[in-house]
Structure formats: C-alpha cells, structure tokens
Simulated scan of single mutants.
Amino acid sequence: MNDQRFIIEMGMGNDQYGQDYTKAAARAIEDAIRHSAIPMFEVTGLTHEQMRVQVTIGVQHPDRVDCAALAGKLPRGRAKVTAVFGGLDVINPDTGKTLVIASAAVEAFLPRQPG
C-alpha cells in the first residue's frame, strides 16, 4: 500500500456489568474519535472514501469482539477492526463478575500526496 498515516488516536472503554467485550471496544473507539475533526477533506478535495481506517482493539479475550459490527459503526472511511490480546479484566471480589476494559488505537491513512 502506498498510503500514509495522518492520524492516530487512542481511547479506553469498559463494560462494568455485562462482560461484553464488543461493548467495551465500541466505547474505546468512541473515546478515541470523540474529539477528532478532520477539516482537511474540505480544503484538499479528498473524499472520505479515500481514507483507510485501521482500528486495533486490545482486550483479554479478542475472540469475543465482533470486529465486523464495530467496523460497520465507524462514521468515515474504509474501516477494518482487529482485536488483539490486551486491555484488562478486573474481577469484583464481592460478586465474581468481570469488569471488561478495552483499549483502542484508531489510525487513519490517505494515499500519499505529491509535494
């Protein structure tokens, strides 16, 4: 690929009660992109479809993350979500329930521009 990364945002999300790794991942992605704005599309003439978005989610059980569902919720670009081992599981000693904590790295790439 001949593209260049121009944004990387990090976020954290959790699911305190449902032990839902996809929900925690979705919240981590939202946290990462919540404060981002990309005004360059308006001034460069590039389209959002030219942007490739790579999301890496870290959780203790990557196989429990619905990566396709998360990719479908991203608002711009051609998205791919990958889950890897990371994040945290914290056990509540009183209930035995697991608090799921996910981390996210959201990267955006565009074709290299001349100059």
Rank of each mutant, 00 (worst) to 15 (best):
N2F: 04
T22G: 06
R52M: 13
M1I: 07
L74I: 15
T95H: 06
R52H: 04
R52L: 06
A37D: 08
I8S: 13
M1C: 07
A69D: 03
A105F: 05
V53P: 13
A105V: 09
Q113E: 03
F41V: 11
E9D: 04
R27P: 01
A26L: 04
I29A: 05
E107A: 15
V55W: 08
L46W: 04
D66G: 09
K73T: 10
Q50G: 06
Y21D: 13
G115W: 04
L74Q: 12
H35L: 11
P62L: 12
F6N: 03
P39G: 12
G58Q: 10
K73Q: 13
G58I: 12
A83H: 13
N2A: 09
K23W: 01
T44G: 08
V53D: 05
A26T: 05
A25P: 14
V59D: 10
V84C: 15
P111V: 14
E42N: 06
A83W: 04
V100H: 03
E9F: 00
K73S: 06
V84T: 13
Q4D: 07
D66S: 12
A69C: 13
I33C: 07
E49H: 15
V81A: 01
G11W: 01
E30R: 09
L74W: 13
Q4L: 14
V55I: 15
E9R: 15
A83Q: 07
A68G: 06
P111R: 11
P114S: 12
R5S: 00
H48I: 07
R5G: 10
R78A: 11
A69E: 14
A71P: 00
F41A: 10
F109N: 03
I101V: 12
Y17I: 10
P62W: 01
F85N: 12
P114H: 09
G77S: 13
G86R: 06
L110V: 15
H48R: 11
C67P: 02
V81I: 05
M51S: 03
L70E: 13
D20Y: 11
E9K: 15
P111G: 07
P93D: 11
D15E: 04
E107T: 03
Q16A: 02
G115Q: 00
N14M: 09
N92L: 01
G96Q: 13
G13N: 00
Q60A: 08
E30F: 05
A32D: 02
D31G: 04
H48G: 03
V90D: 11
Q4I: 12
K80L: 08
D89N: 09
T98A: 02
G96P: 02
L88K: 09
R78Y: 08
R76I: 12
F109Q: 02
H35W: 14
E42V: 03
Q60D: 08
G115K: 07
I7W: 06
L74A: 00
